[in-house]
Simulated scan of single mutants.
Amino acid sequence: MTRTALAIRHVPFETLGTFEEVLEDTGYSLRYADVAAGDIAALDPLAPDLLVVLGGPVGVYEADTYPFLETELALISRRLAAGLPMQGICLGAQLIAAALGARVAPTGIKEIGFAPIDLTDAGQRGPLRHLVGLPVLHWHGDAFALPEGAELLATTAVAN
């Protein structure tokens, strides 16, 4: 049986990268929904087996300028309330944190480039353990508080 994964993207050139192959190898059929291409309000957040919300060059707190953010927050909130699997990358993680009531704000520091991440003990026990010592791309200037009940898995030298 094929499982479905839906990735919401905010810029047309962004993909899941190497994670696409991992999903396909584990039996997922992947589809992208582009925020700029249409109304994401029509998406059913409960339909896919996995929902992934990708990054973008905006902040969660910019909903006055980017009204789609409110729609996305509502979609994410429905998914969270249903207890269904979801992954957030960059802006996606910020949106999930905000939907869970956590504060999201600019840090005042831009973190751009390739650098390693620092894994917590919990992070070293999960799939992120494969990233130990590997530089990963950072391109952000925002941070969010850890939502209630969440566990920190990784951080960076800038965030420490």
Rank of each mutant, 00 (worst) to 15 (best):
V52Y: 01
A93V: 00
R125F: 01
I76W: 00
V22L: 11
G83C: 08
C90A: 03
F144T: 01
T156E: 05
L128P: 01
L146E: 06
D64I: 13
I89Y: 01
A143W: 06
L30G: 04
Y61V: 10
E14N: 02
L50V: 01
T107H: 04
G59H: 02
L137W: 15
P147G: 09
Y61P: 03
Y32L: 15
F114R: 11
A36I: 11
A33P: 09
L16R: 04
H130W: 04
P135Q: 14
G38L: 13
L51V: 02
V104W: 04
A81T: 07
M86G: 02
G123R: 14
A105Y: 14
T65H: 09
A97S: 10
E20S: 12
G92Y: 00
T155H: 05
W139Y: 11
R31Q: 13
G92S: 01
I40T: 15
I96C: 00
A42C: 07
P106D: 02
L119Y: 09
E151P: 02
G17C: 05
E72Q: 07
A63C: 11
D44F: 10
F19V: 14
Q94K: 07
L95T: 00
A41K: 14
E14M: 02
L119E: 05
A42G: 05
V53P: 01
V53E: 00
Y32G: 12
Y66G: 14
E148G: 09
V53N: 00
G55Y: 05
E14P: 05
G126L: 12
Y28E: 08
P45Y: 03
D64T: 14
G149Y: 06
E151N: 06
V53D: 00
A37C: 12
L73M: 10
P135W: 07
R31I: 00
T71Y: 02
L100F: 04
A157V: 09
A150V: 02
G133L: 12
P116K: 01
I40K: 11
D39L: 04
T26N: 15
L54F: 09
A74I: 05
G56D: 12
L46Q: 07
E24T: 15
P12R: 11
Q94I: 08
A99V: 06
A47F: 05
I112A: 02
L46N: 07
A63F: 05
L146F: 04
I89T: 05
L100Q: 13
T26S: 14
F13W: 14
R103L: 06
A154I: 02
P127T: 07
P45W: 06
A81I: 02
Y61I: 13
L30N: 04
E20C: 10
L30E: 06
S29F: 08
T15N: 07
L146C: 03
I117F: 05
R129Q: 13
I112S: 00
P12A: 15
G92R: 01
I109P: 06
F19M: 12
Y66D: 15
A97C: 13
E148L: 10
A98H: 12
L54G: 06
L146K: 13
A102C: 11
A74K: 10
V104I: 07
L146A: 06
A154K: 05
R31G: 05
T71I: 11
H130V: 15
A93K: 00
F19T: 08
V52F: 04
P127I: 03
A98F: 03
D44M: 11
A37Q: 14
A47N: 04
F68Y: 15
L119N: 08
T155C: 04
A154L: 05
V35G: 08
T18Y: 09
F19S: 06
A154T: 07
